[in-house]
Design a binder for these strands. Structure first.
Length: 419
RNA sequence: GGAGAGAUGGCUGAGCGGUUGAAAGCACCGGUCUUGAAAACCGGCAAAGGGGCAACUCUUUCCUGGGUUCGAAUCCCAGUCUCUCCGCCA
């Protein structure tokens, strides 16, 4: 969310910066509401002052007047609240401003490749897709999941289940011991205002799984990513500047409706309603966002380097970035069966956008209260990493070699074979 | 599911109708002392919003929403959340 005070200072710049997003916002409405709002606030405050003075004076002859003032205040407050609600509604639906580094573009076709790494494997046979491999091994069972649950779920069995667990642990260990992240095992439910804090609500409610609870209680949602719950650890807080940067890592299931992606990636486990992801979150001073973004992205690619998987790093264009992001790098891993790169990690700086929504602040040297910067990134999406290993490490007979760094996590298993 | 207790500043915690935005302690910042550090002592220290180039100033805020009152952190009602005990349970 944007700070109205900042917008007001440089209204035209704000407008221009957001045009990069290609979205439709009624800026004039916003400016008008803001103006009306402030006028009403002034009116109200004057009356409040008058009333306060009467009360302080304890002059009985003025008590009746004070009552009248109260009525006027009520009326103005009501009017002001209506305007304030409208204002906040508009404001909470405006996405973050793209950083100047971000290329302008409409959609994913305008994303720009930053670098490439690793060696694309060559096969002297036609490489199979992960789901063909998994089903051949009898270790991925989509039909069973359909029977017990529905579409876009999967049973991962046997050695592939072990591989999945190994990946999670390997990533966690790397981020904890090498990259300085603190491990968190968080709740997988988030309240509605937590969802608001990171930007999933109000605009993207349709993408979320809401939990059905007794009526009267707060709304709760299954987390679509650990970003939500980890970032909100500093919600409504003034954090001690000395503790910054805070770096958290968690491996959690993520739940997504994938509304609007009907018919997309229906085969296999690329796009599921539930998947494991190791998530990185940083809470930083507002000036350190971009620096931290580079660091975080390196933490993510580090995992791919260690797993010896080929990948490329993309910078997302303005039109393809998420709602809360000011700058995003996507890491895409090579998938032989598709003969192309697919997203396996997305690292974003959200500047103070989420900080404002969450009311997360810190004090700087001259005791000014500032909003924190927040970043999040996958380090990595475990399900998709599993896919990448299946496809890149496959042999002609359908067996899968285990990357060296994972073997200690798998009882030194070197290869997954049928039986 | 049954019975109680509570929700106050970064934290702990007093206040229970009128300069209380809120005692005290801790933490934090500045200073004195010290070779340095610690201790001790002195001083400072809430947030949000409005107005002002600024110095500054005004308003709001003691869980949330209503109510009583000239005036509410303090009284009344409703709700949410937390904790303790009993029962049940991974």
């Amino acid at each position: 969310m944007h700070n109205l005070k900042e917008i007001r200072k440089n209204y035209e710049n704000f407008k221009k910066a957001l045009q990069k997003r290609f979205i439709d916002i009624d800026f004039d409405e916003l400016a008008n509401l803001d103006k009306n709002n402030r006028e009403l606030i002034q009116k109200k405050e004057n009356l409040e002052k008058e009333k306060k003075d009467i009360s302080k004076s304890k002059d009985k002859s003025l008590f009746e007047k004070s009552k009248q003032i109260s009525l006027s205040i009520d009326k103005i407050t009501e009017e002001q609240n209506t305007i304030k609600d409208k204002l906040e509604k508009i404001l909470s639906n405006i996405p973050n401003i793209p950083h100047s580094d971000v290329p302008v573009g409409k959609d994913e076709n305008d994303n720009v490749e930053v670098s490439k790494s690793g060696k694309i494997p060559e096969f002297d046979f036609k490489p199979l897709s992960h789901y063909e491999l998994g089903e051949k091994l009898k270790m991925l069972d989509f039909d069973l999941a359909t029977k017990t649950t529905g579409s876009r779920f999967v049973f991962v069995k046997n050695k592939l289940a072990l591989l999945e667990r190994a990946l999670s642990n390997f990533m966690l260990d790397t981020h904890i011991t090498k990259n300085g992240y603190e491990e968190i095992s968080p709740p997988l439910f988030a309240s509605d205002n937590t969802m608001f804090g990171t930007g999933q609500l109000p605009k993207f409610e349709n993408d979320q799984f809401e939990i059905k609870l007794e009526k009267g209680s707060d709304r709760k949602f299954l987390i679509p990513t650990a970003e939500v719950i980890l970032t909100n650890m500093v919600k409504d807080k003034i954090v001690d500047k000395k503790t910054l940067p805070l770096r958290f890592v968690a491996s959690t299931p993520c739940f997504r409706k994938e509304a609007g992606s009907y018919g997309k990636d229906t085969k296999g486990m690329i796009r599921q309603h539930q998947f494991y992801k190791v998530e990185l979150v940083s809470i930083v001073e507002n000036t350190k966002c971009l620096e931290e973004l580079e660091r975080m992205t390196n933490c993510a690619t580090d995992i791919l380097d260690l797993l010896e998987l080929p990948y490329r790093k993309m910078i997302l264009c303005s039109g393809d970035m998420g709602f809360s992001a000011e700058k995003t790098y996507d890491i895409e891993v090579w998938l032989p069966s598709e003969n192309r790169y697919r997203e396996i990690s997305s690292c974003s700086s959200c500047s103070t956008f989420q900080g404002v929504r969450m009311k997360s602040r810190y004090k700087d040297e001259n005791k000014e209260t500032l909003f924190v910067g927040t970043l999040n990134g996958s380090g990595l999406a475990v399900g998709r990493t599993l896919i990448a290993i299946l496809e890149n490490y496959q042999e002609k007979d359908g067996s899968i070699n285990i990357p060296k760094v994972l073997r200690p996590y798998m009882n030194n298993l070197e290869k997954i074979t049928l039986n």
